[in-house]
């Protein structure tokens, strides 16, 4: 699936998007897989309560199943307006 990062999550991980081959069942499982890869992921996902997630461009949560998901995005709380 396509995994996207925005704002300081993008900066900490060092890239805006990547293709991830994963069998993770939930968003949390996917984060666990990423964190296990490299320190920069651990740094970005250190405090999950400070992060938001969208699945296929709809706001979701870390318990949500990933079955059928094409795009998952991680970012800090939004600051528009």
């Amino acid at each position: 699936m396509n995994v996207l990062y925005f704002a300081w999550v993008r900066e900490r991980i060092g890239l805006p998007r990547e293709e991830v081959d994963s069998t993770a069942e939930t968003v949390s499982d996917l984060v666990d897989e990423l964190v296990a890869r490299e320190d920069r992921y651990a740094a970005a996902f250190a405090d999950r309560s400070a992060l938001r997630v969208a699945i296929d461009q709809e706001l979701s949560d870390f318990d949500a199943p990933l079955k059928g998901a094409r795009e998952v995005a991680f970012f800090p709380p939004m600051t528009g307006g």
């Binding site: 925005f6 704002a7 300081w8 969208a54 706001l59 995005a73 970012f75 800090p76 709380p77 939004m78 600051t79 528009g80 307006g81």
Partner: peptide
Amino acid sequence: LMDYLKSRAPFWKREVTAAGTEWVAA
């Protein structure tokens, strides 16, 4: 619209000053 736009539309602000750059916290 403004209340929802601020917290539910995916925008992120970053301030650039002489002191450096900083993401605006929600």
